[in-house]
Design a protein around this nucleic acid. Sequence first.
DNA 1: AATGAATGAGAGTTCATTCAT
DNA 2: TATGAATGAACTCTCATTCAT
Lengths: 207, 207, 207, 207
Amino acid sequence: MRPKPLSTQARKRPKQARSQETVTAILQATARVLVDTGYEKASTNRIAEVAGVSIGTLYQYFPNKAALVAALVDLHVEQMRETFTGLLRDLGEAPLPRAVGVMIHAIVASHQVEPELHRVVIQQLPSVGGRERVEAFQAFCQAVVETWLSMNARRVRPRNHRLAAFVLVHSVDAIVHAAVLEGATFLKDEALEAEVAELVLRYLSPE
Amino acid sequence: MRPKPLSTQARKRPKQARSQETVTAILQATARVLVDTGYEKASTNRIAEVAGVSIGTLYQYFPNKAALVAALVDLHVEQMRETFTGLLRDLGEAPLPRAVGVMIHAIVASHQVEPELHRVVIQQLPSVGGRERVEAFQAFCQAVVETWLSMNARRVRPRNHRLAAFVLVHSVDAIVHAAVLEGATFLKDEALEAEVAELVLRYLSPE
Amino acid sequence: MRPKPLSTQARKRPKQARSQETVTAILQATARVLVDTGYEKASTNRIAEVAGVSIGTLYQYFPNKAALVAALVDLHVEQMRETFTGLLRDLGEAPLPRAVGVMIHAIVASHQVEPELHRVVIQQLPSVGGRERVEAFQAFCQAVVETWLSMNARRVRPRNHRLAAFVLVHSVDAIVHAAVLEGATFLKDEALEAEVAELVLRYLSPE
Amino acid sequence: MRPKPLSTQARKRPKQARSQETVTAILQATARVLVDTGYEKASTNRIAEVAGVSIGTLYQYFPNKAALVAALVDLHVEQMRETFTGLLRDLGEAPLPRAVGVMIHAIVASHQVEPELHRVVIQQLPSVGGRERVEAFQAFCQAVVETWLSMNARRVRPRNHRLAAFVLVHSVDAIVHAAVLEGATFLKDEALEAEVAELVLRYLSPE
DNA sequence: AATGAATGAGAGTTCATTCAT
DNA sequence: TATGAATGAACTCTCATTCAT
């Protein structure tokens, strides 16, 4: 007997074009159902129905519900990461205020990729297969910030870069989260983004 | 399907001592099962069993699962609120650094009331009956901070007190959350608390 | 979290009279469905339906299908055992031919307790939970015969009593089985029983 | 439900060499999967995979699962039959003890052709397509024995040859079965075979 | 006030089988 | 002749909830 496939791994890599479309359809349906009905009420049968495939087809590609959701979260996190890193190119020698502005904007932007899906992912997903993937993204952001702090050590006040990265990423993240979840009245004008910049700059400034 | 009861309110207010004990036992069992097995696997039958009470008895006091969880969350939030406000007495005329230190400590302390339960409440609870109650506590904190800012308007830099309260509460909250969830290596020494104080003080300082 | 109940153990011991009836009804329904449709097509839903209880009730008493069938087999084997031992009292000092006749008759009789159910149990049950229980009965019969041989060592030819018991019990058992399964044309007249007695007596006779 | 195909017959007789190999691969895979995972867990998809063939190809040669298993059982029974008859040549005028010894050995040997597969076939196969084929082999053995009894009528005691064949074949068969299934500790030394010969000879001996 | 047996919709998942390519 | 994506009925089992006692 073969070992049971690890619960959150995809079942097979589709080879034909048709299957690729099917997988895409299933993941899109998963996102939609998750957003519409929440995780609790999102059943695999419903997802298959929305995807326009039979339940059997769904299970050909995903061994269980957790794996299905995990795949979707992976996709989402990957998109956030791309958006984030894409906005961070050429940051090296920018002056402090500009650098901070860019980084904050990158975080904000990465949270605005499919914000409704993001809300569900953050708020409702059970630990297994969901949350840790998002936390991995946060860890990645922290690493980026910590690296940047080290590279600009002479220009910033904090000496413990890891601690500073921890403080900064969580602060900014939380504020952005909250703003996104509140329906974004704050986010639309740039007051919030500026205020966050103020927070960060003052925290980093030598003196 | 039978029509779903909509209420999240408790069914009856027990007046006799014995009933009160029963309710307490049920809520404690709910907390334990929630912590032990997570929300997904916490069934009402299991909770009744752990409480040493029949399932029928449980439903005499709580009309449905949501109400049960809601009552537990209410209790928890109430304890957080008490801890929080308890630490905030006589803050009126304290100098800025001390006032900030006290407030930060109050937030930290309120998060350390039954931290395991807190983790479950924050991470796993479905919207209904759980999250909005926690958010209500955050809103309360924000109101407190906003009030304090207004009362100390001359001594602090930000002019938009609502925005500042939003920024501060979410920042501090998120950092504390994260620290609690990470197993609290940071929290034990006071480095983190000091760093957060730095963040807030610099944000508030005029010029 | 409690350890998962071993797969073939019953779930709870019913305390009220009503539940005892329910359990009986479920087991009877299991027997009927097993006989009517065979093991493969016997679904738990069908069994519950025939028993006149809901599927949930069935699962209150039996944690899974295997446990349900196992309980039924236990009951059946117990009845066979009672029939068998009931016919064996006062065998002690009977002359050889009479003793052999009685034992053979006991085996035949024990196979005629609900022969249709017996057929299903023997022919169709998957290893888990079914077969080994029947094999335990065979082992029991072997032990009885071996004991009897030892107690009558002077009167019988074979010296290796364990081997002799093995040979005898399997022979008689198989012949009876086959006769039962073939629709019992042989069994009705006593020719077969006499012939088996011949086989055994000749095997046991000293010289 | 689509109408279920009723046939147990193979779909087409492969004529080309390649097809023949494919069929062989499928049947070998069936045997392996049956032995490894048991009948319950043996799925046609799994068999096709093990055979290194697509599920579609499997269904080109076998109209359904029953036919597939039936073909395998046919093969197995055919091999048993060949082994059996192969050892029975030139039995005609052999003295009684030798003849009996040869026949018993033939039965034992025929049960040792792929004993693991035999176990599965005997223990696990559902009636349809499996069991009756094995019973056909038993009937064949009975016919052989009955014929031999008739041809040696003067030398043997029993007058009802059909009944005697029934008794003998089932006895020997059962003992051999049981020995094979028990892991064959008895079978290895020849004590068992000798004891069975004793049983049979005494049963057949005139007076 | 307390019990616990009973309910049953609906969940996740499997697998024999088909058919367009 | 071979492929493998797609199908969907049917399965086992859970759990929030009710109600007669």
